[in-house]
Design a protein around this nucleic acid. Structure first.
Lengths: 237, 237
DNA sequence: CGGGACTTTGAAACCCTTCAATGCCAGTGG
DNA sequence: CCACTGGCATTGAAGGGTTTCAAAGTCCCG
């Protein structure tokens, strides 16, 4: 379980790193230490109280829950810069799991951060900001899950990924994404089956809404078609 | 639009009122004023910055968004005691709408609360707590939307309602709920069609998992059957 | 009593899931 | 070096669930 160094770690992609200065707990960076995780590795298990506060530095992590039927659901996807674990007591029993190779997390002792917040309103504000952003992400995910067809869900998901990741790419590449997660993870995130994810991507490609290079690299060709891919126009018989 | 007093307002049900002392902003109650709304009435529109902080006193409210296709989605259901509107700037363009007759909201000027939080760590903590609870509610809703079948979604929804409302009922009635919202609203909350909601409730009744008195009063008969109503056992031919 | 909104039920079309099989790619070991 | 293995991805076909359209039933209120 702790063979962090046994496998050769691929180098992080340029859009996967956060710049150290941009996070709101910059003043507390001395409290944190950076941990590395492999794909699928559990970062903190469900049930146990979340004593730590995490920030994704590179890669991606998901807070997962596994149902009785054996299905897994990803409740929230954390990308570089996102925080997790600011729970006052219990966090609905989610586990945190790395979903990308070379996922790096900055780990803060939550109690110390909380104590710092009591004396420094700016840190309290940063904590509040973090919770608020987590709430915003969940709302966005809820909007996606609320769509009716699978093609719409996958389309909205791609747009979300572009919006959340593309600002780390150089100018002129804001329509490309390298998906940080597998088809299986997308399926668990959208609460649909893997096969449907694959079929939806194929459909979107055939429609000319996106183009794929390999399995992970996606380019948005027709953003408007993705936004309302309800019943996507005319198909040639 | 502002005929608040023209209709006779039914008296609030016992489980719909919050006790004034229990909310975390008790010290700021002098800043707030209580507003009344009718079912379907818009409390604050989408797009405009949320300048106010709301707490539901009685009834229920939902933050809604309407899609291009004409469908509506309810992103978060606010019950007595719940807060809404603590946005730092923009709140993803949701509108807030009363979904029950005689919905009462306590309205706080957000800027003043925020200023109070800067000098009083306890208020800052309360603000944080509110954002955290909103996040928890969204996670629970996400778990429900993630279920596969409609019967599961409706079953989980009923359990959520019981858990969030029943503690206001007297001892021994923790298995009954008076649903604060209509079938249409349930449909928009669960992102399924009204007909499917109705059919699911009928199925659950036939299975003996619940019993209905009228359309709004539900009693949980077999909680276990609701929790994992995946494929609900044997049905008599 | 009638209107209107809400609720329920039915039938057909459509979409998604499931089961199954194949293809693809990287890492491993002979 | 190459075949092999395992995980990931894609595609097909059958079955089941949901949506949509339609209509009837219910309840409240004027």
């Amino acid at each position: 379980m702790q063979r962090e160094q046994t496998k050769r770690l691929p180098k992080a992609l340029p859009n996967e790193m956060i710049r150290p200065s941009e996070h709101p707990l910059a003043g507390l960076s001395s409290l944190s230490k950076v941990m590395r995780y492999h794909r699928g590795q559990e970062i903190c298990g469900p049930g146990q109280p979340a004593l730590d506060l995490y920030q994704v530095v590179s890669g991606a992590a998901g807070s997962c829950i596994s149902r009785s039927e054996g299905r897994r659901q990803i409740i929230g996807l954390l990308l570089p810069g996102d925080f997790y674990g600011f729970s006052t007591h219990k966090d609905l029993d989610f586990g945190l799991e790395a979903v990308t190779e070379y996922t790096q997390l900055a780990v803060y002792p939550f109690q110390k951060v909380q104590r710092a917040a009591e004396s420094d309103p700016r840190i309290a504000g940063a904590l509040y900001q973090m919770a608020f952003e987590a709430k915003t992400r969940l709302e966005a995910q809820l909007l996606i899950l609320g769509r009716t067809t699978a093609v719409e869900k996958v389309g909205s998901f791609l747009l979300e990924m572009v919006d959340r990741l593309a600002d780390r790419l150089p100018e002129g590449h804001h329509d490309k994404v390298i998906l940080p997660i597998s088809r299986y993870d997308i399926a668990d995130y959208l609460a649909i089956s893997v096969e449907t994810v694959s079929r939806s991507l194929t459909d979107l490609k055939k429609c000319g809404a996106i183009s794929l290079k390999g399995t992970r690299s996606v380019r948005i060709v027709d953003r408007h078609a993705l936004e309302n891919s309800d019943g996507f126009g005319e198909r040639p018989t």
